[in-house]
Nucleic acid binder design. Sequence first.
DNA 1: CAGTATCCTATGAGATACTG
DNA 2: CAGTATCTCATAGGATACTG
Lengths: 127, 127
Amino acid sequence: MRHDTSCAGSHFSVDCPSRLLFDQVADKWSMMIMTVLHGGATRFNDLKRRLEGVSQKSLSMTLKRLERNGIIARSVIACTPPGVLYELTPLGLTLLPPFQAIYRWANENMHAVEAARNAYDRNIGSA
Amino acid sequence: MRHDTSCAGSHFSVDCPSRLLFDQVADKWSMMIMTVLHGGATRFNDLKRRLEGVSQKSLSMTLKRLERNGIIARSVIACTPPGVLYELTPLGLTLLPPFQAIYRWANENMHAVEAARNAYDRNIGSA
DNA sequence: CAGTATCCTATGAGATACTG
DNA sequence: CAGTATCTCATAGGATACTG
């Protein structure tokens, strides 16, 4: 089985790995979940509390998708009250540094992006 | 004006910069566009050809959004036939390294992700 | 606690046709 | 060439209610 990236040079075919990544694991919630899990295994409702604004459904779906892609692991702890822990897999851990680079960029360049947006919107208005 | 990231520790508030980033500039098409533009200023239809599967509408919208956020610049060249060039801004250039880290991860870990997915789907079937 | 199921709506995105 | 406009449809996602 070949694993042609099909993205050589500057042509991006439909089966480009980067598409898979952005379709499956590089969204907003995924990044936040992984960042939280980096601090240790976490319960469902703890996650929900930390990810302000996430709906139960979105969280549930995102967790399942991340689990399916081998990024996080789900484990049931038999106790009362029953609980479930989510944690990063070794594979998931390797994704953290790239995400942190993105996250760092976001923090460092928020101002510039906001300024650009304001400038753009002003020009639209006066165009 | 304070620029509280509101994401200290492991709580992600609604105005977290990373959310802005993923909402505005960290999607699939954006990353591919930026990668192409890294090779030099490019015309609209050239971009369309290289991004297999992108619709004219999606490309147009994504370009406008990136321009609004200060990531790329649009310049009209007065000639026949008339043309438009898109290129990365200095700000856009700074986003490239983080994106390349993601891209590299995708290429290196495609196999593992696919394997995880297959395993997961097999277990679902036999559960 | 940790979800699933259902309903409903807003947005995303393709296809197509048209414009400066 | 470089888009915009419109139409349509599929999906993502929130709210709510229910279950093991």
